[in-house]
Structure formats: C-alpha cells, structure tokens
Simulated assay, not measured.
Amino acid sequence: MLDHAMELIEKESSQLEGILPKDYHAFNNDSLLHELLRLFNNDVLDDVGGDIIGRIYEYFLNKFAKNVAQDDGVFFTPKSLVKMIVYVLEPKKGILLDPACGSGGMLIEAVHHMHYSELCCGSIFGQEKNVTNAAIAKMNLYLHGAIDFNIMQGDTLREPKILQGGQLARFDCVIANPPFALKDWGAKEWNSDKYGRNLWGNPGDGCGDYAWIEHMVMSMARGTGRLAVVMPQGVLFRNQGKEKDIRRQMVESGLIEAVFPLGEKLFYGTGLSPCFLIMRRTMPANHSGRILMVDGSSILTPKRAQNVLEQKDIDKLYQLYVDYRDEEDYSRVVTLDDVRAKDYILSPSSYVQYHEEEVEPYESVRQRFMDAYEEMKRCEREFREAISDAGK
C-alpha cells in the first residue's frame, strides 16, 4: 500500500518522479514503521502548512547527520551557519544556485528567506553528485513548499549540468558548502575546461577547494552576481601547489567583499574550523577596493558535544558585516595594498586589532611587592606586640 502511495505522489509532482522509495513491502512486519505511520496519520497534520512537514523531515535529516562520521570532506552544514550566510546574501530576488547542494539545506533556507513568494518559482537550482542526496534535496524542497525547482544529479566539477546556450548558466546568488579538500576532483581536465572555469589556474588534484571557488565565480551573473562559499580555513593561507597564486589573482580581481573564519566544532563529526567568503560582481561604493576581515572564532555558543551559532551569534556576525568597519577584537576593513603587504594572506587574525591588557613595568610590580612585604612585616610586629602586652 505504501509503495502505491509513493507512486501516486510522484504522479502529482513531476519534480519527484522516479525518486521516492518503493520498497516498503520489506517492512511489513516492522513495528517501528507501523508506529511512525500511526503517529503521522493524524488529523492535526492535515491543518498545518507544508513547511511544518518539511521541518519535521529536516529534523530527521539533522539527527541522522549527527550520527554519521564523514571522512570524504562532506559535512552536513549546520542550519545556523546556513542562516547566517543567507542573511548576508539576501536572496530576495533573482535566481539562486547551489552547485554542491547535498540534501538541500542552503536552498531551503533561501526559500525561507524568500518567504515562499512567487520568487521561488523557477528560481532555485542545484547540482549534487551523490544520487541519494540529490533525491533527498528534491524531497526536502518539495516538503518545504518550493513549487518549481531544478535539482540535477552529477559531478559539478567534471560535468556541470546547469547550462544555458552550452555555457555555464549565470545566477544572481551562488551559495555552497562543497566537499572540503576534495581529492581526485578532475584537475587533469581543468587545464582545458571548456567553460573557462580555470580563470585563475589549476589548484592541483590534491585539493579541489579553489576549483569550487572558480566554478562559483564563473556562475555569478554579470552585474548582479554574488556568492557565499563555506571552506576550510586553509584556503586563507595555504601555499600548496598553485593555491597562493590563485589566491593572489582572486584578491586582485576585486571580487572579495568579506572573509569570515568561524570557530571550531560547528560541524557534526569534526572539530574542523570553517570560514566563508563573500564575493560580488558589483560592490557598494564604500566597499570597492576593500575587504572586510571578520574574526568570528569567538562568536559562538559552546555546547558539550558541538558548538552552535545561536541567534545572538548570528546577529553579531551579521551586524559586523552590515557595519563594514573596524571593531577591536572582531573586524577590520583592509585595502588591497594591506593584503599585498601580507603576501596575500587572508586570515583576519593577521589584520584585526586586538585589545591588549596594559602590562605593568617590572620595576613597578617589584616596588608594589616590596611595599606590601614591608606592610606585612609591620602588621606582624604590631600583632606580636599586642599579644605580648595582653600577656602582661
């Protein structure tokens, strides 16, 4: 019966065609499945919006992610981090791409940000290499109320599938948390990439981080394009292979608007500290030729098993971006000359001014110690004299 129900659902939505499981007959005697069906066969759920069902679905995805250790650089992006990034990009209009969409978390948050308006129709695009994850992303978007979306399954770096006129399609917003330090990603083909994605060079087959950045830059629309990409912090300072030269060209392109390294233990199953970069084709006038360096390493809420970005942390990070100014211990706006002087290192800790406690000179400390010592001896003498007088 469940298998037939899945077929009926697919007939109602071409977006879900061929992706829903149809092997529930294997669970005929499974009491857990029966209990789940009983719980969800509830009149209350008939009266709630589609997004509530989507949130339930996302809850289970989140719980599953906590129990799966990853060793291939792929990590489930915490919703709080996604929310922060979407705040900055503000995808309220235009079309949106996630070229490494996983289970669709970033696209879902974009849908939330768009408030389920008609802007969601035909404006959501994603590509995902893993067949199962691509199917999950489609179900996730559908359950959250997205009406018309396009999720393609395939290897984005080797075979991008979201094209227009034989070239990469261009998007107003590009957002992604691609696999970290991906090996064997297709460097050999990158040298002669027919889509021109090797605009700053080939980072080498040992690590695909900069290949993802180059792909996303080439996917930005001219004029309106902007992107946010989550990366390991190594992209800010690593010099392996051609990475330093690629980073130099990226800086000189003038596309980088802000750099945000974050604290550790924000991802499930790893203590790795991430960062994210914000890039724009067209900068606000007061941002042009400058980069906002934000040290977000201390802006988090520690938890026992995993740190999180609570709303107050998101608000703090977002306000630092909105203010786009120097703030002691947290941020500094630098010029391209400043970055050149640091040999193209993009780690904010190399630029942010940190509060330093005034160190008292040694002679002053020594004098205070001697004064206290003399005072102690005086008190001791007076105490002994008082004891002696009391005994007379």
Rank of each mutant, 00 (worst) to 15 (best):
E10A: 10
K22A: 05
D30E: 09
S31D: 03
N41S: 14
N42C: 11
D43T: 08
D51N: 13
I56P: 02
V74R: 14
I85C: 02
I85H: 04
Y87K: 12
P91I: 02
P91A: 02
K93T: 14
I95L: 08
I95W: 06
A100S: 04
G105Q: 04
M106P: 00
S123K: 07
S123G: 04
G126Y: 07
Q127F: 00
N130P: 06
V131E: 14
A134I: 05
A134Q: 07
I136G: 03
M152I: 10
P160S: 04
Q164G: 01
G165F: 00
Q167D: 04
D172N: 14
I175W: 00
N177G: 06
K183R: 15
D184R: 02
W185G: 03
W185L: 05
R197Y: 03
G201C: 10
N202R: 03
G204I: 09
G204M: 06
A211D: 09
E214C: 12
M218F: 02
S219M: 12
S219R: 14
R226I: 04
A228E: 07
L236G: 13
L236E: 13
G241F: 14
K244R: 11
I246H: 08
R248E: 14
Q249K: 15
S253A: 11
G254A: 11
L262S: 06
G263W: 00
G271H: 02
P274A: 13
P274I: 15
C275D: 11
C275Q: 06
S288P: 09
S288M: 13
I291A: 03
S298K: 01
K312G: 04
K312P: 00
K316M: 15
K316A: 10
L320M: 13
V322K: 15
E328R: 11
R332K: 14
K342I: 06
L346I: 14
Y351I: 01
V352T: 08
Y354R: 14
E357G: 04
V359Q: 00
E360F: 02
V365P: 00
M370E: 09
I387Y: 00
